[in-house]
């Protein structure tokens, strides 16, 4: 899932200050799972902004709506009937959602209400952890299912570095040393000798070769 966190309310208020009729737009997919921009959070943000506006005596219209997926045009098109009512959209979608809406409704400013952060997993209630960098060339099978690119602070392919202590990363004792986990995991598989190989430099062209990456699948097209 793509995770994010809501921006500070002051920053949001500053961004929407020039507008009078605002649609607060949530997304019921990833950002709902990470409790940043789902229906619930969208209602909370809209209410908070209305309270703030009332306190300041500002005459603004703030309404809310949540799409199933803000990053898919089939859902974004549902705004077609209502978008004219507003002079700005405050989106709680991820960066992709914000851009998908902006792409479709070019006349209306789309303002991001959350900071998109990472591809991660829900570790526990209220705890999300980055676990994938979307490098375009998955190597997890080599490393016992633990990604050194996303989870090692130095992106080592031949770790662990000299800073690991008691299974913790040198940058912060709250951070697990990914390489400690990899060594433990491969020891359990009886495959530790795999790490005697020197992993060659990674081909980063699959992550950032030239401009935005795209996937085109003819079999999926109309």
């Amino acid at each position: 899932m793509i995770t994010g966190e809501q921006k500070p309310i002051d920053e949001i208020r500053e961004m929407i200050a020039p507008y009078k009729r605002i649609l607060v737009l949530g997304c019921a997919s990833c950002v709902a799972e990470c409790a940043a921009g789902g229906e619930k959070e969208t209602a909370m943000l809209a209410s908070t902004l209305r309270i703030a506006a009332k306190m300041k005596g500002e005459d603004v219209l703030i309404e809310e709506k949540t799409l199933d997926r803000q990053c898919v045009r089939d859902f974004v098109i549902l705004l077609d009937d209502i978008i004219e009512k507003y002079d700005a959209v405050l989106s709680l979608g991820c960066g992709a959602g914000v851009q998908a809406v902006a792409e479709m409704f070019t006349e209306v400013p789309i303002i991001p209400a959350i900071n998109t952060e990472f591809l991660g997993e829900t570790r526990d209630q209220g705890y999300w952890l980055e676990s994938c960098l979307g490098c375009g060339d998955c190597m997890l099978h080599h490393f016992g299912g633990i990604c050194p690119v996303a989870r090692c602070s130095k992106q080592l392919f031949n770790g662990p570095c000299g800073g690991a202590m008691d299974g913790r990363c040198e940058i912060n004792p709250d951070v697990e040393c990914a390489w400690h986990l990899i060594v433990d995991r491969l020891t359990k598989f009886g495959a530790l000798d795999r790490l005697e190989n020197i992993y060659p430099p990674k081909d980063w062209s699959k992550k950032q070769g030239g401009g935005p990456r795209k996937i085109v699948r003819e079999d999926q097209q109309k």
Binding site: P8, I9, D10, R13, M44, T48, I51, A52, M55
Partner: peptide, 8 residues
């Protein structure tokens, strides 16, 4: 925390 952030 939310209401404090808008000065309530």
């Amino acid at each position: 925390t939310i209401i404090a952030s808008i000065g309530l």
